[in-house]
Design a binder for these strands. Structure first.
Lengths: 201, 201
DNA sequence: CGGGCGCGATGACATCTGTCATGGGTTTCT
DNA sequence: AGAAACCCATGACAGATGTCATCGCGCCCG
């Protein structure tokens, strides 16, 4: 019997997924959580075999949870399900030791199959997402450029970005200018949008 | 027996919701759809009592489906479930004749209860969403301002917005300036973000 | 060791944006 | 009829932004 921890902030979906997984004879949902922190705390107590975690949750990112889980419970395999599959998320997730990565558009039997796969030490990444991630390519942005661009996401003026990044406004403009060039955008706002769409930030 | 049509692009969730609803003795999921168009076509054939529709789907907006359904099948009550509840969506949905509006964070028994409620001619809106919608207030933007601001969402430069809106660049700047003032933002990009967050566009 | 790269900064310049005043046209309400 | 709101446009001005050249510093790699 594979013991599963389920984490998703949407009760409806979590409950529904639990119901579906419980239909399988060899699967058992032993715990559920609605937030990342809750998932982490619960996992430490129940020590599940597999953790099925939603990517976007109110507090902790699914990837962060996976990372913590990987060091805390090495015997527990983590897989991520998500509604909006961005290439960058996939890359980060894989780096965090995630064994499975699925969009929520998959059918329930695929989900069950993948649970078994990762429990057996295998890996599984949705083919469509994998293709997207490959085609998106590596980020050409330097770490600092990515930082600054991320701060630009909300549309703040340069002076505020500079304050938040503890940089001179001129430096911020240089980084942004470089990022605009690399993304092919016509201004930093579009650049920030594109970079996020490509999973670079 | 209440006959239900279920529309959601995420197979996993749709299947799971179907499983949950079928657990209820008086509810029966008679059809499922993965897109808005599919939902509409299916509904015309099976004529369900209640349509449970996801707000965001690949092709047709959930609200558009609801609107079409309201005129096509007056006997069918429509309710919307959504992951991201923006106040503006609620308002539009209500205007389209939607009888129930729920976030996906609700529990399954609430979902079943609401299905029965709307089938009996009642209405139900999630209290948290309702409160949010009320506090967000009416949009202070004029229709044209909203148009232009929407085109600004993607970060395009003013000249492109002007072309896409068939306006003079100067006029675009005037509208945007007005919108920036009304939203309390410091530039059009932030204004666009805020307006979307408040459901004004 | 030298070169390449990233980090942080400055200054100069052209352009883009935001703001304001102004005007004329339409529709709607009083 | 008059006021008020919206639509569309123009012109002017200041400040924000994008771009480029240039500098010094530290790091790593061949």
């Amino acid at each position: 019997m594979i013991r599963i921890l389920l984490a998703d902030d949407e009760h409806l979906i979590r409950g529904a997924m639990a119901a579906l997984l419980s239909l399988e004879d060899d699967l058992e949902v032993v715990a559920q959580a609605a937030t990342g922190a809750e998932a982490l705390a619960t996992a430490r107590v129940v020590r599940p075999d597999v953790a099925v975690i939603d990517l976007q949750m109110p507090d902790l990112d699914g990837v962060s949870v996976a990372q913590a889980l990987a060091s805390d419970l090495p015997t527990c395999s983590t897989m991520i399900v998500t509604s909006h599959g961005r290439p960058g998320h996939l890359k980060r997730a894989l780096a965090a030791g995630v064994r499975g990565f699925l969009p929520k558009t998959v059918s329930s039997d695929v989900l069950a199959t993948v649970v078994r796969t990762v429990h057996n030490g295998g890996r599984y990444v949705d083919p469509a997402l994998a293709a997207e991630a490959i085609s998106a390519g590596d980020s050409p942005l330097t770490p600092r450029e990515a930082d600054v661009l991320e701060l630009a996401l909300e549309g703040a003026p340069i002076d505020e970005i500079a304050r938040r990044a503890s940089l001179s406004p001129g430096t911020v403009r240089n980084y942004l200018s470089s990022a605009v060039g690399k993304t092919g955008a016509s201004n930093r706002h579009e650049a920030a949008r594109l970079a996020r769409a490509r999973g670079w930030i």
